[in-house]
Design a protein around this nucleic acid. Structure first.
Lengths: 212, 212
DNA sequence: CAGACGCTATGATTGCAATCATAATCGTGG
DNA sequence: CCACGATTATGATTGCAATCATAGCGTCTG
């Protein structure tokens, strides 16, 4: 769910260039001719669209292990800036190489489509999560979405501050929500684990449906 | 940007079944074996994930002209429910047919990837938009994102109420934001058009960057 | 034509998350 | 080891969007 570079790992035998980019510098700029697609090896890259009046909107933040600019495979020019947030290392794979491989290898193309479909699902779920106004309910919904593998358990792989940003809340609100949920017995916490007892026999209809 | 069923229109010659679904009824249910991918012809379909404790989380709302369950192409079982929000008509295309065509036709597969990449971009942009807290700034950013073709102009193809929902604001807030932006001269409105004068020579650095 | 319904619009009030402040704890590197 | 930064808290206050209410308007329909 998190890493979106899987298909790019499967893309063996292509030229790859390792680039080091200092914080604030650009991997590519909006309007430049597309030369490559990228994978973040270390650090963080921010994709922003510059608008006519000079303002900018963040479209995405790609982290280590993620590919970015996949859409560039289908465009002549980059539609956004890619700016290093911190000191960052990326791998560049020439667009032409990737296209050639994709056109020759339907299996690889399907892998790409699979990765993109997974991304769509992931980011859509995050978007719908934002439709939950209440911080408590939002945090709870996020936890329940994470509790995929072990049913009633979530193990964090990053600090709550990062999770808070992903959820679109301040970390203070998240800590408060967690404290509130724990005090009312909805969750339990131990170290970086959260347990969702999910009181036995809770019927679905007594709980308000989380919807848009 | 809006329609995501383009590739499915290009998929000619496959079996298609037209289904009518009453409001509240299911197109498919979580856990069921994947049989088809779908396109909404009329109405609205809500994709929800049911959780162990009976609660549900909305993953996506597919509207007329959009395809849904593309991810099903890569799965054996549906991972969510598809419930008709209103009386709805959908078109079902058997998964096996689609897979066969995709494996045989790299061009079609690339079309699918292209459509998915566009969806990722679109929904990411919407997600980042949510990171703007201020209703005024969010509405303004949305307008600027829409003003792609004609630089300083946005023409609405749907009512503000729908736009408000997409932006994650109440329609009241949107009307207020529009009124405020207009009164301060940032935008002008005529019928269903919005003009963004974008005061000439506005330097980029005097405006706070909209970021996460 | 009347009535219903959806869209546009604005006023008043309130709830709640952001914000600002402060502090304990933990981990890390110099 | 100690200093510094990041993380995990929690308290007080405030700003602002949601909510509730009301109304004019447009358009569709019987």
């Amino acid at each position: 769910m998190r890493q979106s570079a899987g298909w790019i790992e499967a893309l063996t035998g292509t030229n790859r260039t390792r680039l080091s980019v200092r914080a604030g510098e650009a991997v590519f700029l909006q309007g430049a001719a597309v030369t490559a697609v990228y994978a973040v090896k270390r650090g963080r890259v921010r994709l922003t669209r510059r608008l006519e009046d000079g303002s900018a909107i963040v479209l995405h933040v790609a982290r280590a292990g993620e590919a970015f600019a996949e859409a560039a495979l289908f465009a002549d020019h980059y539609h956004c800036d890619a700016l290093a947030d911190t000191d960052t290392e990326v791998e560049a794979i020439p667009k032409a190489d990737v296209r050639a491989r994709l056109e020759a290898d339907p299996g690889l193309c399907l892998d790409l489509a699979r990765a993109l479909a997974a991304q769509v699902r992931d980011v859509r779920a995050r978007l719908e999560l934002r439709n939950i106004r209440s911080a408590r309910e939002r945090v709870l919904a996020w936890l329940r979405l994470q509790a995929g593998r072990v049913p009633g358990e979530v193990e964090l792989d990053r600090p709550w501050t990062a999770v808070a940003a992903e959820m679109g809340l301040t970390h203070e609100s998240v800590y408060r929500a967690l404290a509130s949920l724990e005090s009312q017995g909805t969750i339990r916490r131990k170290r970086n684990r959260v347990y969702l007892p999910g009181r036995a026999g809770a019927p679905s209809r007594d709980r308000p449906t989380l919807s848009i």
